[in-house]
Design a protein around this nucleic acid. Sequence first.
DNA 1: TCGCAAATTGAAGATTTCTTCAATTGCTGC
DNA 2: GCAGCAATTGAAGAAATCTTCAATTTGCGA
Lengths: 118, 118
Amino acid sequence: MPVPLYQAKAEFFRMLGHPVRIRVLELLQDGPMPVRELLANIEVERSNLSQQLAVLRRSGIVTSAREADTVVYSLAGPDVAELLGAARRILTELIAGQQGLLDELRAALPVDALTRGR
Amino acid sequence: MPVPLYQAKAEFFRMLGHPVRIRVLELLQDGPMPVRELLANIEVERSNLSQQLAVLRRSGIVTSAREADTVVYSLAGPDVAELLGAARRILTELIAGQQGLLDELRAALPVDALTRGR
DNA sequence: TCGCAAATTGAAGATTTCTTCAATTGCTGC
DNA sequence: GCAGCAATTGAAGAAATCTTCAATTTGCGA
């Protein structure tokens, strides 16, 4: 009785649904990186980063290896860039779409109609 | 002060992180579909489906239009298939990887070592 | 207008995920 | 061995998301 595929997909996307985890994956696209350096590039405290790294490790999308006194993380497979790329394309589209909508509204309304009252 | 990009990405993936929402997007890949038909294809109660559709609508990844007494949903853009495809590739990879690991373990342990006790 | 079916909304309680802290493990050099 | 830095872990409270129910909106036909 395997986990239904759409549930596995949902879990997978949920795993990606955290700013720190996204940043880690983006940084690892340029190659393996020690925790120390991830920490220097992401504004988050050490133990929180560890928690997020644990989530990524559990899902299998990254692997870790100890080298002397530091731990180095790598992407587990080559397709992550492709995924993040597809996501960026859709996001760009969505943001452009919303922007376009805003523009239309602005053209038809007083200039402060969209911000007034908040 | 725009929302940082990595946060927008995280929100985007979180929006995808629900089995019902995934199924809806998959069904809409074949073309627009009325709620009634989504309901017939997904095991979920009506008002729960509506809630999930609202999440998708708010994010802008789908649009809805009323036609007579039914509401029809469509994908907002063409790139969704690409995204779901990339996700499937990675998932397949991950599952294969985990399977490979399990196989290695099985080769080195008593046959019931991995299921015993649960 | 009334009743009916389709779909959405708002709100509440249950569940899950996040953040943070203290405690622990692993390694290196003294 | 033990002091010190790197990283992880477990646990608890805070915050976000899910599910469900009752109430509401919209369009259609009697």
